[in-house]
């Protein structure tokens, strides 16, 4: 009984990521913020699918005496998280390549100095 501590950690990760995006001035720090939020949501999905004292949903060399539905962790959140991780790396690559271009055009990474489109 650990009083939902992993859920609190998830929210803390999301808040830290949002903090990085709102208060930090560097573009790469904003990207890192998105990565942190992404990790928080992934952790949330996996935490939702955990059952106390369960084993991974893999039948090969299953420990003997496992109850079949109740003794296994949820497979669906794990599949969703796999999708989410690959989406995260795709978005990250695109954002960083845009940042390289922005640096070439403006010569700075400060979020206040780029653009200026009113």
């Amino acid at each position: 009984m650990i009083f939902n501590f992993p859920f609190i950690a998830v929210i803390a990760l999301i808040i830290i990521g949002l903090y990085a995006m709102v208060f930090r001035k560097n573009l790469i720090k904003m990207v890192i913020g998105i990565t942190i939020i992404q990790s928080g949501v992934n952790l949330f999905l996996i935490t939702l699918g955990y059952r106390e004292g369960s084993v991974a949903p893999i039948f090969t060399s299953l420990p003997s005496g496992t109850e079949i539905p109740q003794g296994m962790a949820f497979p669906v959140p794990q599949a969703l998280t796999l999708t989410s991780i690959v989406i995260g790396v795709a978005v990250l690559a695109l954002m960083l390549s845009l940042i390289i271009h922005i640096y070439r055009h403006y010569g700075t990474l400060d979020v206040r100095k780029i653009g200026g489109e009113k």
Partner: peptide, 19 residues
Amino acid sequence: SLMMHPFGNPEKTNMDDEI
């Protein structure tokens, strides 16, 4: 996060059990 179900004891499990 405090209102969630207790960690490690999800309430509804029908879809995943079926899978």
